[in-house]
């Protein structure tokens, strides 16, 4: 299967997850967008040497995955495939920062290793937050939420059109690549020359399609403005959702919960 087809399947998969009906899915998209942003800002605001403090934040993805009926393994797979840039850069930390920061008996942990693990944890948390947002809300609802949150209308309309036509154009692209690969017996990879003309061809088709869409829009009274009506209701439950999570984030940020917990436990057992 080509990259294009699997990418389409992927996006379709998240779409299907978003079509469920769970307490999480029923929340107003604005509530979920705001909470996800608060979560990410909280995660990245931790010091890079603070590992234990980050752990309670795993509560957020875990609860949303469980209540939102999302398949954890599927999401984990997507996480692992995600852009490795952070890890490539992060892996330098243990090499560059060898200051011993933590000693457990004879073993000393350098600051570099701690910050590397911290990068890993941040990566897991932030990326899962984005994936969970999409798979509990759906792309179009996220766009609608953004419109209501005062993101310029042109941009959200673009996002919606882009998302609508990804499926159409990627399908076209994958047909063209298939037609090429069936005839390209010798080489398994496309030369830049072939690639350029294939992509040029795809581009011409895209421009023609845009023209036809424009015609279809015009014949239904399009005047440059795309109007949307989808009622959104921000109810008590939504407010509660945002408030409860934000309160938890602030709490987790303000005091190191695992540290306190550990002390309490050791204090009791001592």
């Amino acid at each position: 299967m080509s990259t294009i087809e699997s990418a389409l399947l992927d996006m379709g998969g998240l779409d299907i997850l978003a079509a469920q009906n769970t307490p999480i899915h029923r929340r107003d998209p604005r509530a979920k967008v705001l909470t996800a942003l608060a979560f990410i800002v909280t995660v990245v605001s931790f010091s890079k040497y603070d590992l234990s403090g980050l752990l309670p934040l795993f509560l957020y993805p875990v609860v949303l995955v469980a209540l939102g009926n999302l398949p954890p393994r599927y999401l984990l797979g997507k996480l692992l495939l995600a852009s490795p840039f952070a890890l490539i850069i992060g892996v330098f930390n243990p090499l560059l920062d060898r200051t011993i920061l933590l000693r457990i008996g004879p073993v000393g942990l350098s600051g570099g290793w701690i910050s590397f693990v911290s990068i890993l944890l941040r990566f897991l948390l932030t990326v899962s937050a984005a994936l969970i947002l999409i798979s509990t809300t759906g792309f179009n609802a996220v766009c609608l939420a953004l419109t209501r949150l005062k993101v310029p209308h042109v941009l959200t309309v673009q996002l919606m059109l882009l998302y609508r036509y990804i499926f159409v154009l990627a399908e076209e692209a994958s047909r063209m690549v298939r037609a090429w690969s069936l005839r390209a017996v010798k080489s398994r990879r496309m030369s830049p020359k072939v690639f350029s003309s294939l992509v040029g061809q795809l581009l011409l088709r895209a421009v023609d399609r845009a023209q036809r869409i424009h015609m279809a829009m015009l014949s239904r009274g399009f005047d440059g403005e795309i109007r949307l009506i989808r009622p959104l209701r921000f109810g008590m439950a939504d407010a509660l959702f945002v408030l409860a999570w934000t309160a938890f984030f602030v709490l987790a940020r303000a005091c190191n919960l695992p540290q306190l917990l550990g002390q309490a436990v050791l204090g009791i057992t001592r």
Binding site: I4, Y165, L169, A206, A210
Partner: peptide
């Protein structure tokens, strides 16, 4: 308006080849 959306989808598809 439609051209931007479709060309965005085009770039998206082209990036996958």
């Amino acid at each position: 308006v439609p051209l931007m959306g479709v060309l965005g989808a085009f770039i998206f598809s082209a990036q996958m080849i």
